[in-house]
Amino acid sequence: MKVSTVKGARTLALLLIVSSLVAACGLPRSGPNKREILSGASQKQGDAFVVPVNGHVSRAAATTPAFGFSRTFRDAGLMGSDMIAPGDRLGITVFENVRDDPLLGNAGQRVSSLDQVEVDGQGYIYVPYAGRIRAAGQTPEGLRQAITRQLQDQTPDPQITVQRLAGDGSTVTVSGAVGAQGVFPIERPTRTLAAMLAKAGGTTIPVSTAIVRVTRNGRTGQIWLEDLYRNPSLDIALRPGDVVVVEQDSRSFVALGAMGAQSRIQFDTQNVSALEALARVGGLNTQIADPKGVFVLRDEPAEIANAVLGRKDLSGDQRMVYVLDLTQPTGLFEARDFTIRDGDTIYVTEAPFVQWQKTLSAITGATGAANQVANTGQ
C-alpha cells in the first residue's frame, strides 16, 4: 500500500512538471517577443516592412506638422487704427461760433456733444441738421470733414471733433486656452495676432504645446505659438470678424512593453525623438527589457515609405516597423535622431532570458507542489 502511494505521488509530480513545460509557451508576458515581430516582416510574407533605423531612415521618416499662415493671411496689411466700421460707436462734438442762437444747442451753449453715436449696419450715422452720413470706411478725420460740409451752410464756421470709441465694428473673437476669452476691438495697440493674444491675457497652457488657429472668411490658418513668439515676421495683421482659438497640441504616442510605464503620452514639445519618448515613460525596465528590441510601429504614407525603402512602387499607407538596437555603438544616437510622430506605438520586447526565468520558476513551483503532495501522501 505504501509503495503504490509513493508511485502515485511520483506520477502526479511528473505530470505536473510535464504540464508546466508544455504550458511554458503560454506564460504571462507583456507582448510578442522580438522573433515573433520579425517573423511578420514583408520579407517573410508578412504584412509589415521591418526596417532597422539608421541615418538615412531617420532623415527620410522625419516629418512634423507644417504649420503656418497662407499668403492670404500674410499679405493682409495692418488696418488703419482709426478706420470706422459698422457697429462702432463715435463721440462727436460740435463747437459753434454763435452764442445767442446756436444750431444744435440752447441759447448761450456753444458746445454740443453727441455721445455714443452708433454706426448702423449699412455704415451710416445720423447727425441733427446734417442728416445721414456715410461713416463706415472713413477715418475720424474724413468723417469730421463730411459733417463740417453738411453743417457749414447752417452755422458759421463750425468746429467739429470725431472720436472713434470701442465698438462692435472692428472686433476679433478670442477663445480657447487664453486668460480672458471674449470679443475684443481692433485698436492701435492690438492690430496684430500676437498683440491681441496679449490683450486676451496670454495663454493658460505651455507655449511649447500651444497652437493658434485663425479663421477668416471661411479659411483657417494655424501656427505654433512658440514659433510666433520666436519669429515676429510670422505675425499677421487682424481683420474684423477674425476668430482666434488657442488649443493644446493633441498629438500623442503609445508606450507598451518592458518599460518604466505603459500609457498614452501627450506631446509636450513640437518634436519628440525616440530617445526622449523612452525617457518620458521611465526608460527601459532594466530587469526585463531587451535593448535590442525597441520597435516603433507606424502607418507610413506611401511617399515616405518609398523614400525609406528606396522604392517607387508603393501606394497607400504602409505598415512600418522601425527597429532600434540600443546596444550598437551608434544606437543611442539613432534613437536621438529618430522622430516620433502622432499615433506611433513604441514597444520594447522582453529579453530572451526572461521567459526562461519564468519557465524555470514555473517548473520549480510545480516540482515543489508535487513534492508536497508526495509527502502528504506518505
Rank of each mutant, 00 (worst) to 15 (best):
V6P: 08
K7P: 13
T11W: 07
L12Q: 13
L14F: 08
L14K: 04
V18E: 08
S19Q: 10
S20I: 02
S20L: 09
A23V: 03
S30A: 14
N33A: 08
R35Y: 08
Q43G: 14
F49N: 05
P52Q: 13
P65W: 15
F67T: 02
G68F: 00
D75W: 00
I84V: 15
A85P: 02
R89Y: 13
G91N: 06
F95V: 06
V98Y: 04
V98A: 01
P102S: 05
G105F: 03
G121S: 12
Q122F: 07
A130H: 03
A130C: 07
G131W: 00
I133A: 01
R134H: 08
A135S: 14
Q152L: 07
P156F: 14
Q159L: 09
T161S: 14
R164Y: 06
A166Y: 08
G169M: 01
V172T: 15
V174L: 11
A177Q: 04
V183W: 06
P185C: 04
T192Y: 03
G201P: 13
T203A: 08
T203L: 06
T209I: 07
V214L: 03
R216I: 04
N217L: 08
N217E: 13
R219C: 15
W224E: 05
W224I: 05
P232T: 06
G241A: 13
V243F: 01
Q248A: 14
S250K: 13
G260K: 07
A261E: 06
Q262P: 12
V281K: 02
G283I: 03
L284M: 06
N285G: 01
D290I: 05
P291R: 06
P301W: 12
A305R: 00
N306S: 02
N306V: 02
K312N: 15
D317W: 12
Q318S: 11
Q318A: 09
R319T: 02
L324Y: 01
L326S: 09
E334M: 12
A335H: 00
V348H: 05
E350Y: 05
W356Y: 11
K358R: 14
A362Q: 11
I363G: 02
T364R: 13
T367C: 04
G368A: 12
A369E: 13
A369G: 10
A374Q: 14
N375H: 05
T376E: 10
